[in-house]
Write a protein that binds this DNA or RNA. Structure first.
Lengths: 169, 169
DNA sequence: TGATAATTGTTATGGACTATATCAAATATC
DNA sequence: GATATTTGATATAGTCCATAACAATTATCA
């Protein structure tokens, strides 16, 4: 390495001066970072999940749990392997997730009579009711916030582009 | 719960019949899931990171490491707290990340003479060279793929919307 | 048929990333 | 000069994600 072991702080325009009223901590320049797709995508995703969790606080549903409920409602009678793989969740990791939903009586595992190895997944009545409330919360608080921020047309364009990336990148 | 403990598989149009040539595993219906911002956003982000790692395989740089190098290059002379917080990384977690970059001689910690508590961060010559190669790889392999997929105009629109979400959601 | 292979749900486990508390050294505050 | 704050660091725990392995069950096929 070619750098010396100690160094002065680079001559600074605001912090170094005594007459300046102790300028702010001077935000860093993002530079090319703000043009990196991955960087912006990740930060946006974190913000969206954070907002989602706030909106769902009363129902205590994470994005992953919500996605399972949605998928099981739309596809009742599928087994764990099918549901998990559709969501990109590995079978072993899906077990605890389901244990949680089942312990809260939102979802049920039913031993299939066709193939006694597999567990058929179904929403319970409570699960359907909770999901219905969850959908309303998402629509009115979460997705509404997005529309407010981007506008309806942009929202659709964004979703389409993200889908394209998710499926074809 | 109101569901019975066992159940027949729902009468199936393809798999149940003996005369059909054993239809495909029948993909699940995503339904409303494909309209959920968080879901699509997360899947897109995973794909993008995956592609990034492939493009960077020869340099062994993760997205987080690349972002640190970019930020330190653009803002030499800042300390760990400043760089970490700008990237949304907690100070304790930033230590190991820096240990890695420093052990590979890409980045150096220099004890500041102004404030002997803090470590000034600088890229080494090797760090600058590696970063330059990394930028080229990202531009030609990674971001180019995005342009090819969305087109230049859409790419810019996407980045702008994601930035808006990251900053204002 | 029966031996072998494959599948399903599960457990155990390790790695990566994230979050909090705490510490010593150094600095700031008053 | 006593106290509080800041910085980098360690320890630690929690959450995801990934792989191997296992028992029960089913599929394959010689």
């Amino acid at each position: 390495m070619t750098v010396s072991k100690t160094a002065e702080k680079p001559a600074d325009a605001t912090k170094g001066r005594k007459d300046a009223p102790e300028g702010l901590p001077e935000a860093l320049q993002l530079g090319e970072l703000s043009e990196q797709l991955g960087y912006v995508l990740k930060r946006a995703q974190l913000k969206v999940f954070e907002n989602f969790l706030r909106c769902m606080a009363s129902l205590q549903l994470t994005p992953a749990q919500f996605s399972v409920l949605l998928l099981v409602e739309k596809n009742p009678g599928r087994n764990q392997t099918e549901v998990a793989s559709t969501l990109g969740i590995l079978r072993p990791n899906f077990v605890a997730l389901l244990d949680n939903l089942e312990s809260r009586d939102l979802c049920a595992r039913i031993r299939s009579t066709n193939d006694r190895r597999s567990h058929i997944l179904v929403l319970t009545d409570k699960g359907k009711a909770v999901l219905a409330r969850a959908k309303k919360l998402v629509a009115t608080k979460h997705e509404a916030r997005l529309k407010e921020l981007l506008g309806q047309a942009n929202r659709e364009a964004l979703l389409e582009m993200l889908s394209k990336i998710a499926n074809e990148f």
